[in-house]
Design a protein around this nucleic acid. Sequence first.
DNA 1: CATGAATGAGTTTTCATTCAT
DNA 2: CATGAATGAAAACTCATTCAT
Lengths: 208, 208, 208, 208
Amino acid sequence: MGSTGPRGRIDKRQAILDAAFTVFAREGYAQAGVDAIAAEAGVAKATVYNHFGDKETLLHEAVGVCADRALTDNLAVVERLAGGEDLRETLEDAGFRFLQCYCDPRSTALRRLLAAEINQFPDLLDIVDGRAADRVTDALADRLARLAVAGRLRIDDPLQAAEQFAALLTGPAATRSRFGTRDVSEEELRSVARSAVGTFLRAFGSVD
Amino acid sequence: MGSTGPRGRIDKRQAILDAAFTVFAREGYAQAGVDAIAAEAGVAKATVYNHFGDKETLLHEAVGVCADRALTDNLAVVERLAGGEDLRETLEDAGFRFLQCYCDPRSTALRRLLAAEINQFPDLLDIVDGRAADRVTDALADRLARLAVAGRLRIDDPLQAAEQFAALLTGPAATRSRFGTRDVSEEELRSVARSAVGTFLRAFGSVD
Amino acid sequence: MGSTGPRGRIDKRQAILDAAFTVFAREGYAQAGVDAIAAEAGVAKATVYNHFGDKETLLHEAVGVCADRALTDNLAVVERLAGGEDLRETLEDAGFRFLQCYCDPRSTALRRLLAAEINQFPDLLDIVDGRAADRVTDALADRLARLAVAGRLRIDDPLQAAEQFAALLTGPAATRSRFGTRDVSEEELRSVARSAVGTFLRAFGSVD
Amino acid sequence: MGSTGPRGRIDKRQAILDAAFTVFAREGYAQAGVDAIAAEAGVAKATVYNHFGDKETLLHEAVGVCADRALTDNLAVVERLAGGEDLRETLEDAGFRFLQCYCDPRSTALRRLLAAEINQFPDLLDIVDGRAADRVTDALADRLARLAVAGRLRIDDPLQAAEQFAALLTGPAATRSRFGTRDVSEEELRSVARSAVGTFLRAFGSVD
DNA sequence: CATGAATGAGTTTTCATTCAT
DNA sequence: CATGAATGAAAACTCATTCAT
């Protein structure tokens, strides 16, 4: 029956957005052909234009969708960060999951795409920052602040501590992934998280 | 008169390389036109081809030149990092200079260009890493190791400490510069360096 | 309620034909989009196809309708041309009305459209000539012949005289309207008619 | 040797202009493909863009060239119109030549093209009128005025007489050529000229 | 029958690259 | 070697037309 009814419209829209992100991430905005996107989505080129009007809009929408997903994933990780029995283990676990998000191919692609196109499309930053980057750091700062209040960390400036915690995790991970070129093993991620947490706790751990 | 002797050739070559980097950085590889590069360099388009053969080669050479310069600048900073009287001040100063390199427009542009084109031209990574990124971390690790040996820092794994020191500096700086979109004031850079060194010393400082 | 009964169909058909002529006249056949026509008619694009099959048919029907109307208008003018008391006044009046038809926006548009598309669609000429141009000149020749028979004009070849009368009217009017670009005032039209009739009577008037 | 030197450039430019006019006249602006123009000119499509930038500019230049030629031809005819022995013969001859210009395929095509595109490109009128239509009528008025001064014609308003003379010639000729669809024989043109001059002289001839 | 969605073929325009001077 | 001109391949975008509801 109605299996190809209004549902088809939505399915195609999603397929196009997914395809667009894939192709944009793989080839860059300028290099990516709308032809290729349509092919990847399994629709005709004109259908892409029917839905999104032009290539630029397609980029913006595709980035928006991807940023939404990344935000959701990241917040899920951060919000689970509550002080369990063993603080070190809790932080290492959160750090590891955080790095998994960070190293997820789509996150990596999103960062690369952003870096690549920020000059031509400065508003991409607003799309992503409004939805992702800043809000994750904020949420992390909240969690760290609670731990400080609970006496388990010694932190003056929770936002700065959050930034530094994130930096200790993502900096070394970025080096290892070589701009997303190399796959970083779970093993390695755990090791990076362990080192980061080690340093973080030496700097911010309470004495007890 | 010999004003366009061998000197003219070399000048033109340099002009083309500079123009190429400028335009590639501003517009991205695919978007950048050889026309625009030639115009920026003040030569005819065919001259660009006479010197470099094709657009791809031009990208590689331009990136190479820029990476060389970045390496030189970074090493100069790191190599000046010796233990003065006041360790904190020494580290803060080095961190600040390091961030100045990191935030230099051409460095920013290089990182963006790299992120953008790494998929299409994976060998760009070799050019840059062979000449820049890794070697700076190595040099920094050396310096930190010396300070550890001198008893002024407590470090197990100097390479890891160097990575983390760099991460504590560049992570927050990257956030503030918004992918090189915003100019970060000297003030801010100093503040970032201070925080980074503060955390670093709490984690790795010797007790004395 | 039967508001969309057979009446709705016919209304829509008319609306589409009107819209089609408007858009074809404004933009030319090739440039005119079926989208634009459908929008102007207030129907869906597919409805246009349901009624007319394809764009070419639509052009033919729209031109036919317009030519019919022009013929009716012109014949009405010519048929009122009977010898009143004052021949000069009669001719000037007929000439003026004739020019009003000639300068009517839709007549102008029809002539332009015809000129534009005659190469691609030679059969448009048949549609228009069969229905309009020739028959008007014929009718005019009839009237002039009657006036000759009545001794009020001296005419050998009524068809030729009719052609020349029409030419004396439309030639200068065409110059003034600049291909239908300029609106020609009633004043001007009367003046053109007066001149035309003056010359015509000097050439063909009987002596009395 | 230098046979394909800078000369080639100019040759190609001319070839493109000719081809453009031919194709625009044959198919109309919107329908005409730059592909087809390039093919007709025997050059690559990109060469057309190198020379003229875009399709619209090409139309304007092609129309300009054609209007120049038409003006030259027409003025040559009008300027030869001096009062010979036999005025009727002189006028018939000039009228015939004038109609030859008017019925020349390129003139016909120019008028059609103008009519077709005047809505989209109103400035075409300026190009053509500034160079052709008006100036011919003016020149004709001059000649008629001289004949009036010489006592061979009785004319109050030379400009109006010129307009009417032209109308008596072109009106019937236009009818016969059916928008340039039919070729009008030399015979027919002479006949039209004879009738026009007959009527004109009955209206404006001096008594002698 | 009226419609929204989908599409294939075509359009203008751009651009890396080559060639003749 | 430097250059202006020429080009073939490709890209974004459009549009007449069809199909499923």
